[in-house]
C-alpha cells in the first residue's frame, strides 16, 4: 500500500466516525433526548479536555492502563508458552486440550466475584480477569500457527545443522509469528473491554469506576468522558501493536 492509498483509507475511515458524531449531535439538537441525560458531543469533548489537565483523572487512566498492560502481558506470555508447548508435544497437547475446551467458552467475568473474594478489590483481581480473558485467543492462535508451520522449513533448518531442541525457537516461533500477533491483537481488544468492565463492577479507581460513579450521580457529561477515553486508548494501543506487528512481520506476505 503506498502513501496515497493509506491517506485515502484514513479519510474513508473517518467518515463513519463523523457520521456517528453527527447522529449524536442531531439527536440532541432535535430534542429527541434531554441534554441533561445525553449531553452534546462538544460539551463532552470540552469536559474531557478539562479533565485531562487534572492529576486525578490522569491517575484513573494510569490505574486502568496498568491493569490492562499487566493482564495483557501475562496473557501473552502464558498464551504463547502454552500454545507452543501444546503444538510441539503431543503429551502436553493431550493434557491442555480438554482444559482449554472447558474454560475457553466460559464467560470469564463470571469468575470475577470469586476473584474479588480471593484477591480483593485492588489490582490483582482485575489483572487476573484481564489475563484470563485475553489468554485464550492468544493461546489458540499460537497453537494453530505453530502447528501449521511448513514442514519443509523445519527440514531445511535441521539439514543446515539445527539441533531438534533449537527448532522451536529458530523456526516454529518465528514461523508462527503472524498467527501469534493476530491473537495478540484480539487479546488486546478484549483486555480493553474487560479491564473497563471489571472496574465498573467493583473498583475504587480507574476509568470504569469514574463512569459508574458519574452514572450513579446523574452526571451525564462525566459519564461519557471515560467512555471516549477508553475508546481512544484502545485506538492508540492497537496502532502501537500494529506498528510492532508490521516491523516483526516485515518479511511475511500480506501484513
Amino acid at each position: 500500500m503506498n502513501g496515497r492509498d493509506a491517506t485515502r483509507d484514513v479519510l474513508l475511515g473517518l467518515i463513519p466516525i463523523a457520521l456517528l458524531l453527527a447522529i449524536w449531535q442531531g439527536t440532541v439538537s432535535l430534542g429527541l433526548a434531554p441534554p441533561t441525560l445525553l449531553p452534546p458531543p462538544g460539551l463532552v469533548f470540552m469536559r474531557m479536555a478539562q479533565l485531562l489537565a487534572t492529576a486525578s483523572f490522569n491517575q484513573e487512566i494510569l490505574a486502568t492502563l496498568f491493569r490492562l498492560f499487566a493482564g495483557f502481558s501475562i496473557a501473552v506470555v502464558l498464551g504463547i508458552a502454552i500454545g507452543l508447548a501444546a503444538a510441539v508435544s503431543p503429551a502436553i497437547n493431550a493434557a491442555v486440550r480438554p482444559v482449554v475446551r472447558v474454560l475457553a467458552p466460559l464467560p470469564k467475568v463470571a469468575l470475577y466475584p470469586a476473584l474479588l473474594l480471593l484477591l480483593g478489590f485492588g489490582h490483582e483481581s482485575k489483572i487476573t480477569l484481564v489475563a484470563a480473558d485475553a489468554l485464550f485467543p492468544i493461546l489458540l492462535s499460537t497453537y494453530y500457527g505453530a502447528s501449521t508451520v511448513e514442514q519443509k522449513l523445519i527440514w531445511s533448518a535441521m539439514a543446515a545443522g539445527t539441533p531438534p531442541r533449537e527448532i522451536l525457537f529458530k523456526v516454529i516461533l518465528p514461523g508462527a509469528a503472524p498467527s501469534i500477533l493476530t491473537g495478540c491483537r484480539i487479546g488486546l481488544v478484549i483486555s480493553c473491554i474487560v479491564v473497563f468492565l471489571a472496574e465498573m463492577i467493583t473498583s475504587t479507581d480507574g476509568l470504569g469506576h469514574v463512569l459508574i460513579t458519574a452514572a450513579r450521580t446523574f452526571q451525564a457529561v462525566d459519564m461519557f468522558v471515560p467512555l471516549i477515553t477508553i475508546s481512544l486508548l484502545g485506538l492508540i494501543l492497537n496502532g502501537l501493536l500494529q506498528a510492532v506487528r508490521s516491523y516483526l512481520l516485515r518479511g511475511f506476505p500480506e501484513v
Binding site: E150, K152, W155, V171, G175, A177, L249
Partner: peptide, 9 residues
C-alpha cells in the same frame, strides 16, 4: 525443495 522453503522472516 520445489516450494523453496525459505525463511520468510
Amino acid at each position: 525443495f520445489q516450494e523453496f522453503a525459505l525463511f520468510p522472516w
